[in-house]
């Protein structure tokens, strides 16, 4: 893990142009968020609030369950595309894919490739 993080460190330091010692003016929850944002954090949807002696991270807006990075629309399109490809390469019924598509938050590139191989994403590596 340390190696993993230190590899990140090397990359971060190489591209990094922060001024050493620039630590003033970042006090409190707002200051910390501003500092994190200036250093690349995407904080648009969260807020740091004072919570007793500590700080708590709270949502700045409502989030739907299974909010994905790439958005539901893109995932749906990807599943649709996979379905078409599957129909093209196989004459088997595609009920299984329709069922799996209802579980969108679980979909990732690995699951997509398993769909193409006609495998159940819940059974990793096990071909039907």
């Amino acid at each position: 893990m340390l190696i993993f993080l230190l590899a990140g460190l090397a990359a971060a330091n190489a591209a990094d142009n922060y001024a050493a010692g620039e630590t003033h003016g970042f006090e409190g929850a707002d200051g910390l968020v501003r500092w994190a944002k200036e250093n690349g954090a995407d904080t648009d949807h969260v807020e740091l609030v004072q919570d007793g002696d500590g700080m708590a991270l709270v949502a700045k807006r409502d989030f739907a369950a299974g909010a994905l990075r790439c958005g539901k629309g893109r995932v749906l399109f990807r599943v649709f595309l996979c379905n078409c490809l599957f129909l093209f390469v196989s004459s088997k019924p595609t009920f299984a894919i329709c069922t799996m598509a209802s579980d969108l938050p679980e979909y990732g590139p690995a699951a997509t490739s398993r769909i193409l191989l006609n495998q159940d994403p819940s059974q990793k590596g096990r071909a039907k």
Partner: peptide, 15 residues
Amino acid sequence: MLSVPAGLLFPTRVS
């Protein structure tokens, strides 16, 4: 909801 760069994961960017 939130994403942070590797450079904000301690202990990257140590002195």
